[in-house]
């Protein structure tokens, strides 16, 4: 199984190549540089592995939520590459990828990833690691104020992502003793997108290039005049 994944929804820009269980990655925190960096990262990973794009089984990308522009850069790049090379695509939630990264780095098994969505809101979801070392979502993905996001049941949750930096007070207060740690600076990374994508690809959940689309969570983006 060979899969190339990219992630550009946060201030980090990254690409990762998965080859039969081994992952290599290029990762850079580079705000507003994603359009310059992402294709060279992909090219370099393939060159280092001496592979051509057409020798891969699938492509994957962080499909949001996150920066609208960032999510569309990843989507557009993957659509073009997948259409050109006739490869299937696995869209992966950026919230899941962030939770997966936190599990990979800290071993936490109950994770609440949250991005600052501006306008007083969060992109939010809850994940648990069950058996396969991969996160699985509990409940739904949401765009909501910190006062209204759904809190999961149970103990031992850890908060990760920019949403926890911006709204630490209200979220900490709401979670109370069920929250054990906060990691507010964590950004998404393509290697976690790749890990999650392998599971979904194996489950037959890849889609055609033109169906590789963003998930914004926020759909009310303009007001109609009265």
């Amino acid at each position: 199984m060979r899969l190339l994944a990219i992630e550009t929804a946060t201030e980090a820009c990254s690409a990762a190549l998965y080859i039969n269980g081994e992952i290599s990655e290029h990762y850079e925190v580079a705000p507003r540089q994603h359009a310059q960096l992402i294709l060279p990262m992909m090219e370099q990973l393939l060159a280092e592995a001496e592979l051509k794009l057409s020798q891969l089984d699938a492509l994957a990308f962080g499909r949001g939520p996150g920066s609208f522009t960032g999510v569309r850069i990843a989507t557009g790049v993957i659509q073009g590459a997948a259409f050109g090379a006739q490869l299937p695509v696995v869209p992966i939630s950026t919230l899941a990828a962030l939770a997966q990264r936190h599990y990979r780095m800290q071993g936490a098994r109950r994770i609440l990833p949250a991005f600052d969505a501006r306008m007083g809101e969060l992109y939010w979801a809850a994940y648990e690691v069950v058996a396969d070392g991969l996160v699985t979502r509990v409940g739904s993905e949401q765009a909501a104020t910190p006062e209204r996001v759904d809190l999961p049941a149970g103990e031992g949750w850890q908060g990760v992502g920019t949403g926890w930096a911006t709204y630490s007070e209200i979220l900490t207060q709401r979670m109370g003793a069920r929250l054990t740690a906060i990691e507010g600076g964590l950004l998404c990374s393509a290697q976690d997108v790749a890990q999650l994508a392998v599971r979904r690809y194996t489950a037959g959940e890849a889609v055609a290039a033109e169906l590789a689309l963003p998930v914004y969570l926020r759909d009310q983006v303009a007001k109609k005049p009265a």
Binding site: A35, L39, M42, R72, I73, Q79, G80, A81, F83, G84
Partner: peptide, 19 residues
């Protein structure tokens, strides 16, 4: 429009790369 332009640029540039 910057966002609209980026869509065509991303798809066009990566399609050329793949081909």
């Amino acid at each position: 429009l910057v966002g609209a332009l980026l869509v065509g640029a991303a798809i066009g540039r990566s399609l050329a790369w793949a081909l």
